[in-house]
Amino acid sequence: MAAVTMVVNGNSVSAEAEGRTLLVEFLRETLHLTGTHVGCDTSQCGACVVHVSGKAVKACTMFAQEAEGAEVATIEGMAEPDGSLSRLQQAFQDHHGLQCGFCTPGMIMSAAALLRENPKPDEAEIRAYLEGNICRCTGYHNIIRAIMAASGQELPQLASQ
């Protein structure tokens, strides 16, 4: 066990973690931030995507101790300070970008990372960036429309529709 200190959603936190404790386990079980989901636990589904030092990573494939001193952002930190949904979250709601909602935290975190790198992504760029986020409801079209809307773009007929 070792003491781990990191800044999660702007709050400094410190707690004990074993070497083998994954970042996602630390977030969910130690900090009780259960918005970050574990879908596959094999680095493939993306439900556990969070930001570490500004980069989207799969929290199931990183150890908590490796986030020592880092700034971590999770879905719990995405809303506005007054509790209202962020523009991206609101767009997911407005465009029905979620069905069961299990993949949504990872989708939002990946989409937020994309929009930071590329404020006006086209459909192909969105699809490429979400390659590591799987929606078992197969609701991809509306997720893409939500991200285009959140980035202030017109909603064209998607190439695949």
């Binding site: 993306g46 989207a56 960036y129 590591g132």
Partner: peptide, 9 residues
């Protein structure tokens, strides 16, 4: 390689 989150690690 992989996907964006994998490439960040």
């Amino acid at each position: 390689i992989g996907d964006p989150a994998v490439r960040n690690r």
